[in-house]
Computed example of a mutant assay.
Amino acid sequence: MPPKRKHSNEEHDQDNARTKRYAYLKPHVRRVSERTIKTKWSTLPEATQDKVRDMFRALERPVIVRQQNERKRIEAQAAVQTVVKNLGKRLPRMPFPPVTKDSVFEYEAALKEHRSLEANLATMTDSIDLLRAEIEKEELLLAKEKKQLQEIEKNARRVEAEKKRQLKNEHPVLRQLNVAEKQHQERTPVLVASDKSLHTTFGELETDPEVGRLVRQLNGHLRSMQNNTAPLTGLSDAITRSQMALALTSVSED
């Protein structure tokens, strides 16, 4: 039964704490060892004991006035006086804890500290909200950059695949030229092809219809250029002779 009573009391305190929306004092039991009481606690000064006795005597009046029956009033007064008398006798021997900062409750100081804590809490809450907003912003930016990186990697793989496909379909002669150019860029020793390899290369060019068509087109362009520049043959010599004649004429006139 006692554990159930304790459990019910705790539930009652929790219900009261939930219903109360304001600051309140909650009783707290603190267990102090007997050694601490004997070594650190002491009796009250005489002036303080007199104040405590006055407080005890002030408690008699409410108890007596509450009773309407004269007989009960006398009995209550006698009982209260007995208790006050016993407490008054024990008071000089009662040990009390030393006066510390925690033992003195100042309502105004508690309110001031409460306001300070609330201000600090509001500041910390605002800082946390700002940090969360920055974290969300950075996470969105990171997700965007990851998406861009994936697109870049995808495009790079596509370009690499296209390059491999083009290299696969490239003509063997052009492939050899690319290899030679790459070797030249890497400053590797240039290997002179033998007559046999050159003969093989030109043989491949002659047998390739596309290369043959390109060669014929180039020959046609070259012949056309020669025909167009044929009338200009000797023009440079004629200009030189004319300049010399003009120079001699100007000298003779002087």
Rank of each mutant, 00 (worst) to 15 (best):
R158W: 07
A109Y: 11
V29F: 09
H199K: 14
P27W: 05
R30G: 02
Q176V: 00
R115A: 08
P92S: 12
L177Q: 11
H221K: 14
G220L: 05
E70W: 12
T125N: 15
E145V: 04
K112Q: 11
F96L: 05
V173I: 11
D50W: 05
N69H: 10
D254G: 08
T36H: 04
A245S: 10
H221G: 08
A143Q: 15
L214S: 08
E160P: 01
S236P: 01
S33F: 03
T125L: 13
T100W: 09
E134K: 15
E46T: 06
A238N: 07
Q183P: 01
L214C: 05
L111F: 02
H114I: 03
L167C: 02
T43W: 01
Q166G: 05
E34Y: 09
E253V: 06
I74S: 08
F105E: 02
Q183M: 15
I135P: 00
L222W: 01
I239C: 06
K137F: 06
R71Y: 10
R31I: 12
S197D: 08
S33Q: 12
E10C: 07
E151Y: 03
Q14Y: 10
R31T: 15
H7Q: 10
L214Q: 13
T207P: 00
A76L: 02
L130C: 09
L87T: 07
K137H: 14
D50Q: 14
S116Q: 15
D129C: 03
R90M: 08
R157E: 13
V215D: 03
K6W: 06
G212P: 00
V84D: 00
